[in-house]
């Protein structure tokens, strides 16, 4: 089917709306899961089982007074959360989210429009996504530096260190599958593994999978690598001075990134989606959900690492392992 600009636009709107909603819903899920793991009930009072908590939070975030610190660089302070949110969503534009479909013809105006699974199926999809996520570094970094707060500065410094370092691991770890597939497009990855569970790249590249997962946690600023805003150490790091919807945008960005990483992991290593039918889409939803849940689970179970351990892990363990993995993959391919 022909990809028209109107289809892409509809897809973009769907991504924005749905992912934002899912990000919001993610906060509810996170609270609930953490609560259950600690034998608590979690949010219970707003709506049935606390389901409307998200709405309450939204209302709160939107209505909260917008404060810009006196000595902050106001422009950068205001733009920083937008960068985070924007990069996260831009990254999602190159990732297949939901199956492609055609809008039924009985719907006026838009009837018959083909909506692709990927808003923009770039041939360098993987590279683009990784690049956008790397660009997301500017959000926390600028936020931390602009807010005239020492905790923010420390948070910003940690952001730079952590994101830049783990970007290396992410790139190197995913390089081996790319070598195997021979393409940077997510569609090709999907096609490569279309043969069923046995064809999943995770079996061929377990080390790359683990490395990508670890690096993904670091990239998305999740426990055990949530050093950027670890409240016991740096209050709230780069987000110290933020409140209201600006802070909310960081939050949406983070959840969007979590979804992105989950999608990449699912598509690259766990077989992706089955283009043939609805069941495949259920599968990938399940896979994404599993990765999302894993992030919450890990948060409930593990303590976070020290900054020095973080760097040590990155440069002395993960990076060498990734390089070795590439070399071995290359050798195997050559042979």
């Amino acid at each position: 089917m022909e990809v028209t600009w109107i289809g892409v636009l509809i897809k973009a709107i769907i991504i924005l709306a749905v992912i934002s909603a899912i990000a919001g819903f993610g906060t509810y899920i996170e609270r609930k899961v953490l609560a259950f793991m600690q034998r608590r009930l979690g949010p219970m009072h707003v709506g049935p089982y606390g389901l409307l908590q998200i709405a309450a939070d939204g209302i709160k975030l939107f209505t909260k007074e917008d404060i810009v610190p006196q000595n902050a660089n106001a422009f950068i302070f205001k733009i920083a959360p937008v960068i985070t949110a924007a990069t996260a969503f831009i990254a999602l534009s190159a990732v297949p989210v939901f199956p492609d479909f055609t809008i039924p013809s009985w719907i006026p105006v838009l009837g018959g429009t083909f909506v692709p699974s990927i808003a923009s199926d770039l041939n360098i999809g993987v590279l683009f996504v990784l690049g956008m996520m790397a660009a997301g570094l500017y959000g926390p970094l600028l936020a931390g530096m602009s807010q005239a707060n020492k905790w923010g500065i420390i948070g910003a410094a940690r952001t730079a260190v952590q994101f830049l370092s783990y970007e290396v691991v992410t790139g190197l770890s995913i390089l081996a599958p790319i070598m195997l597939v021979g393409s940077l497009s997510f569609v090709d990855f999907n096609a490569y593994q279309a043969g069923g569970i046995g064809d999943w790249l995770v079996w061929k590249q377990p080390v790359a999978f683990v490395l990508f997962l670890i690096a993904g946690f670091a990239e998305t600023n999740r426990t055990p690598f949530d050093l950027l805003e670890h409240e016991a150490e740096v209050v709230s790091g780069y987000a110290t001075e933020y409140s209201g919807m600006r802070w909310g945008m960081f939050f949406i960005g983070e959840y969007a990134n979590m979804i992105t990483v989950s999608v990449i992991a699912a598509v690259v290593f766990l077989g992706g989606y089955d283009a043939a039918g609805t069941l495949g889409w259920l599968f990938i939803m399940a896979k994404i959900a599993f990765f999302f849940f894993l992030m919450l689970w890990v948060r409930a179970a593990w303590p976070h690492v020290r900054p020095d351990q973080l760097m040590w892990l990155c440069w002395k363990v993960l990076m060498p392992l990734a390089v070795v993995n590439i070399v071995i993959t290359a050798l195997v391919m050559m042979v």
Partner: peptide, 21 residues
């Protein structure tokens, strides 16, 4: 092990009525 402990707690809380709240 850590993951299992938390998971076990969650299972107990949800299905064995071992909720402390």
């Amino acid at each position: 092990v850590g993951l299992w402990v938390t998971m076990r707690s969650m299972i107990k809380a949800l299905f064995a009525n071992d909720m402390h709240t």
